[in-house]
């Protein structure tokens, strides 16, 4: 990897300052995607601003009929959190399925969201639960946050501080892992929320999206068979070595049905 200047601020304001002062600064959270990217020399930032020293960004707390997870909270903490397990068990289960043990010990929810990998797990939960992404500047609704392949609503100098998840009536996540990388070939998060049924799909295309056809079917009849019966259009899915668009489309219905069964 190319060399860079390293900053380790203690608070968000200093992080923003450091980012503003850098020629081509990049934020590092867990680093589980960024460090491999730097190693492959696919990115060469002038400065790295490390958020690991900011205590305010860590931790899980109960808040207004739901839970709030600090941006620098590790996946392993979410997976093991009794607070998360009691309020939204599906979220803890999803966190347990991210990467491997070592990735979970280091990777963070904020990093995962800011990166918005099209095959990442967390975006499915954020969108599926209709969570709110909090930044140093504002609150962003999940439906507005994800904007396509590695693109988010985050503006320059904007740092995710926390994510607020409203408690759903029920929810579940089912993932079919790409055999080599173990990222989601297809992951489906199904939630029965106050605002209705939400079904979020990761791994299918250029980023997480809501499977509205399945939402409609499940609103009418919340059963595995109803989800399984929805045939999605393969044209909306990408294809690669591990899955054709047809396969991915079919897996969405299958994984959605299994998630409903687990709800």
């Amino acid at each position: 990897m190319h060399n860079f200047n390293y900053h380790r601020p203690n608070n968000v304001a200093d992080a923003v300052t450091a980012l503003g002062g850098a020629g081509d600064g990049k934020i590092i959270a867990g680093g589980m995607t960024l460090v491999p990217t730097l190693k492959q020399r696919l990115a060469a930032p002038s400065d790295l601003i490390d958020l690991n020293g900011i205590a305010d960004l860590k931790g899980i707390k109960a808040e207004s009929d739901g839970i709030t997870i600090g941006a620098m909270t590790r996946h392993a903490e979410v997976a093991a959190s009794s607070l998360v397990k009691s309020a939204i068990p599906a979220l803890a289960e999803l966190a347990e399925l991210i990467g491997d043990r070592q990735v979970r010990n280091r990777g963070t929810i904020g990093g995962s969201l800011a990166n918005n990998d099209p095959a990442a797990d967390y975006p499915a939960a954020i969108l599926g639960l209709g969570a709110t992404v909090r930044t140093n500047k504002r609150e962003i609704a999940a439906d507005d946050f994800f904007q396509g392949l590695f693109e988010t609503a985050l503006e320059e100098g904007e740092i995710i501080t926390a994510v607020h998840f409203p408690k759903p009536e029920k929810a579940a996540y089912r993932k079919f892992a790409q055999p080599a990388s173990r990222f989601a070939l297809i992951g489906v998060f199904v939630a029965k929320t106050k605002g209705g049924i939400r079904v979020a799909v990761t791994g299918g295309g250029n980023g997480v999206f809501r499977a509205t056809d399945i939402e409609t079917a499940l609103a009418a009849n919340f059963t595995p068979a109803a989800a399984k019966g929805v045939k999605l259009d393969p044209a909306d899915f990408n294809g690669d070595l591990h899955g054709t668009p047809e396969y991915r489309a079919a897996l969405v219905s299958t994984m959605a049905a299994r998630a409903v069964e687990a709800c």
Binding site: Y6, I28, V35, P36, D50, Q102, V103, N105, R106
Partner: peptide, 25 residues
């Protein structure tokens, strides 16, 4: 690519992949 785990060490009591952590971190 942070997959193989030959580099796993413990940092502050938990296992991490030392090929995916900067020494300075």
């Amino acid at each position: 690519t942070s997959q193989c785990g030959a580099c796993v060490v413990h940092v502050d009591g938990t296992s991490i992949k030392s090929c995916t952590l900067l020494a300075i971190q």
